[in-house]
């Protein structure tokens, strides 16, 4: 089967991993993009700086690449990536405090625990939102990103102008996009 017959965004992680191993670099690209923001956000949430975040990000993906053969059978790649990223953040911050002796005691257990009041649960929910937004139409993605991610809030008239809509119809479009996003989140198992 030629690569790309089915939309790559609909492929499961396991399918993408197998395709990576089969030499399809597009599969690796998509896998990286799927979880890129999730992984890059973790060092910042851990309180690390940008330079550290860059190093940890690359290190997590290098580990993922090197473990592809064993990750084929994993149920939740996302959980694996988060666990590895948190371990690296922990080790990084511990080393920076020059207290390597702590690693022996805590390192193995740390990642399986909730390290900072629900960080893992929050990361999961944020990632579901990213994945749901990625499944929206281009137009709805623009609306949702303007609604939630722009600071200051651009206002409905601006959003309407960007989309080439009248100010009167932006309310309908906004509601439709919010509704669609909510349904996608439900389908992906978002729980609150």
């Amino acid at each position: 089967m030629q690569y790309g017959v089915r939309a790559v965004r609909d492929r499961t992680d396991a399918e993408l991993i197998q395709e990576c191993l089969d030499g399809h670099s597009e599969a690796w690209d998509f896998l990286v993009h799927r979880y890129s923001r999730l992984i890059y956000s973790i060092p910042f949430k851990w309180g690390l700086q940008r330079e550290d975040a860059k190093e940890i990000y690359q290190s997590v993906w290098l580990d993922c690449f090197q473990e592809l053969h064993s990750l084929r059978d994993i149920n939740r790649l996302q959980a694996w990536l988060v666990r590895i990223a948190i371990r690296k953040c922990y080790r990084f911050s511990t080393n920076k405090r020059s207290r390597p002796e702590d690693v022996e005691i805590v390192e193995t257990d740390h990642a399986s625990e909730d390290p900072s009041e629900g960080l893992i649960a929050r990361l999961d929910r944020e990632q579901l939102i990213r994945m749901s937004i990625a499944k929206l139409t281009e137009r709805c993605q623009q609306v949702i990103k303007a609604l939630f991610f722009e600071d200051p809030f651009p206002g409905y008239a601006t959003i309407a102008a960007r989309l080439g809509l009248s100010s009167n119809s932006i309310g309908f479009t906004r509601d439709r996009c919010l509704e669609r996003l909510g349904k996608l989140l439900e389908e992906l198992g978002y729980e609150h």
């Binding site: 670099s25 690796w28 690209d29 990286v32 890129s36 923001r37 890059y40 956000s41 910042f44 975040a53 860059k54 990000y57 690359q58 993906w61 290098l62 690449f65 929050r122 929910r125 944020e126 939102i129 990213r130 949702i144 990103k145 939630f148 991610f149 722009e150 600071d151 919010l178 996003l181 909510g182 989140l185 978002y190 609150h192």
Partner: peptide
Amino acid sequence: WMQVSAGLGVRELSYDPPQPVMEAVLRL
């Protein structure tokens, strides 16, 4: 979910790694 989305907020757009970092990862 709206509050979590709003909590991501403007930071979400800063969670893209720098291009050279991303390219190094994609080269793998």
